[in-house]
Amino acid sequence: MSNDLLHRPARVVVGLSGGVDSAVAAWLLKKQGHEVIGVFMKNWEDDDTESHCAAAVDFVDAAAVADVLDIDIAHVNFSREYRERVFADFLEQHRRGRTPNPDVLCNAEIKFKAFLEHAMAIGADAIATGHYARVRHNTETGWYELLRGVDPSKDQSYFLYRLTQQQLSKAVFPVGGLLKTEVRRIAREIGLPNAAKKDSTGICFIGERHFRTFLTRYLPLQRGPIRDENGVTLGEHCGLPFYTLGQRKGLGIGGVRGVPEGASWYVARKDIPANTLWVVQGHEHPWLLSDTLHASDASWIAPPTPGVATMGSAKTRYRQRDVACTLRAAEDGRFTLHFAQPQWAVTPGQSAVVYDGEVCLGGGVIDAAGTTPSS
């Protein structure tokens, strides 16, 4: 276990999602002698009748796990908090033509704030989830550090970079030191009913349906031109919020008369004032490459020294390998990253997360990307 809190028997409230990771996390904690209580978090209820989030099925699975493990489980509704703290920001970012990552805000505001507050109110010493990450207390600095999960293909520290020292001091990630294959093996060996359950993907409140179809329920369609780098109009978009930088599919310009054949088309820019979507041909087009990004709304687990260049690595999206960078942070929550190699489709609204080896330093929300002029 990677958190100093659990060197003694403790009362730990586990967020049981219905998935195998949180189920094994609960089992590991109970095996170590802790008092374990399960909580199923309901974070979305707008589509209960359509069951897009399959919340009812997930709760049945979570309850079945609690029964096998012989622990209590409660069903707690955080839907109001989710709508106010996460979904409202999600819509506002899309209105601004950005591409937000609601999972980052959900962790900071719901799973490690609303849920943590609930757990503390019922006498918990700590909370636990099935995230693939680790927490370490650095006795020299006194800081709690967020570490990558041991399984590089499942590491979820990217989504947790906004956690505060107070939140990290109460957080336990029991499967963070395991490979996913080990988690599946444990689940099978102890007879968990969800041992073979498929991992959930995507955003819960969107579920299995088409993203654009969902978003049109909340944002109006404002059509405008699709233009190439020469200003030639190639077609019409259905609304800038429904596209993201680097997008290749769903542009509706393939096979259109007058559109040049050859390399695939990619979304490269979104001009909000002109309501224009700019596209380019070729994955490595210069408009898609950036060696600098500017971010704001920074959240630092261990704050860097303002104005001082710090070497590290960073991700500008979750499914991406780290790349070497130089960080310069300001005191106002803004920072700049300079990359040794150009990065592809750096997208406003996404998170730029910075690392020092296995330690996640924090990050912020990307505002803009660019190319540093050559000297």
Rank of each mutant, 00 (worst) to 15 (best):
G312R: 05
W344N: 08
D322C: 12
Q343K: 13
A314T: 12
L361P: 01
D332T: 07
M311I: 14
T326F: 04
D332V: 09
G312K: 06
T310L: 15
G357L: 06
K315M: 14
F339G: 01
F335N: 08
P342D: 02
V346G: 00
Q341C: 01
T347P: 10
G333W: 09
L361F: 03
P348L: 08
A345E: 00
G333P: 11
G357W: 06
A314K: 10
D356K: 15
Q343D: 03
S313F: 04
G349E: 03
D322W: 09
T310A: 13
M311Q: 15
R317E: 12
Q350C: 08
G364R: 06
H338G: 04
Y318G: 01
V359D: 01
G349N: 10
I366R: 05
G333D: 09
T316G: 00
T310M: 11
A345V: 04
G362I: 13
D322I: 07
R334N: 14
I366G: 10
D356W: 06
A345I: 01
A330S: 15
P348N: 07
V354T: 03
W344A: 09
H338P: 00
Q341M: 01
L361M: 12
H338W: 14
Q320W: 06
C360L: 12
G362H: 08
Q341W: 00
G333R: 05
S313M: 07
V359K: 15
E358K: 09
R321Y: 11
K315L: 14
M311C: 10
